[in-house]
Amino acid sequence: MLSRVADSLYWMSRYLERTDGILRMLKMNYASSQDDLGEFSWKPVLQIFTYMNEGEANAIAFQSRAVLQYMVTERENPNSVFNIVTHARENARSIQDHITKEMWQCLNDYYHAVRNEHLLIRLEREDPISVLDVLIKHGLLYYGTTDITMARGESYVFLTMGKFLERALQSADILDVKFSDVNFDFSKTDTTYWKYLLLSISGYELYLKTYRSGFEPRKVVEQIVLNDNFPRSVKYSINRLHGYFERIRNQGNTKANEKMQFMIGRLRSHINYSTVEMIEEEGLHLYLLRVKKELRDIANALNQYYFAYS
């Protein structure tokens, strides 16, 4: 496969995964803001998903609608849903012959949806959740279409690697920021806080079913980092990343393969042989920093060994 094509598939996939994460997180945070008796701060959200500095984030941290507008439709925000979906589609556009026509149509519809001029007005005046739901559904349609129509060849591998790499990074980021908000204090037991954290990454119901003892930070960490069955856990994502990489391992490019295999394998082992106690001992922040660094190294290596076409 052309290096450029692999690169575009990978980034298309990362962008869509990121969009999905942002939209879900916005939806749940908005819902959370409706429950909050005091003022609900969007600052952690802005810190994870935008390039705003502290001052800028503080300035709109308490204005839900302004944050939604900035995160969804703002053209000046490079990480707005508008821009990310546009990037995803630009990538898709240059590789139309490597994705299915159905996927291309999904992305195209998604693209036209985020460009719809009524979107902003509706975000300002109507129930934001219904607006976000419409966009989330576009993403779901893309996931489903990809699953059903895309051949399981090399294209699919790069697509999926992009998805899980992005997801692992996101989960680690969310956990890091949310815990830094409470100074990594594992004794904080504000139910609502953890409930919305889990909701925002679609892990609430699984948590209830798995841990019947109520909300406990350690269990939250365990689910988001180490749960084998939680599709957004760091562990699940990295195991998937590893599995898909194994599929392309035996094609040419030996030096690159060895290097990649080493990096992914090391990270995978590290996660698989971690426990919550060990994480607590090392310090959650340091642990997550290391995971994030290794994920970025893997991304760089992919770039260097597989996507270097120019």
């Binding site: 496969m1 052309l2 290096s3 450029r4 590789i95 012959d97 094609q251 040419g252 996507f307």
Partner: peptide
């Protein structure tokens, strides 16, 4: 067939190659 751009191709020893994930 493959859709390529100029940056996907390179000429070496008077032959044209495309840059792929496998070389």
């Amino acid at each position: 067939v493959e859709l390529v751009e100029g940056r996907d191709l390179v000429v070496d020893n008077h032959k044209v190659y495309m840059k792929t994930t496998a070389g």
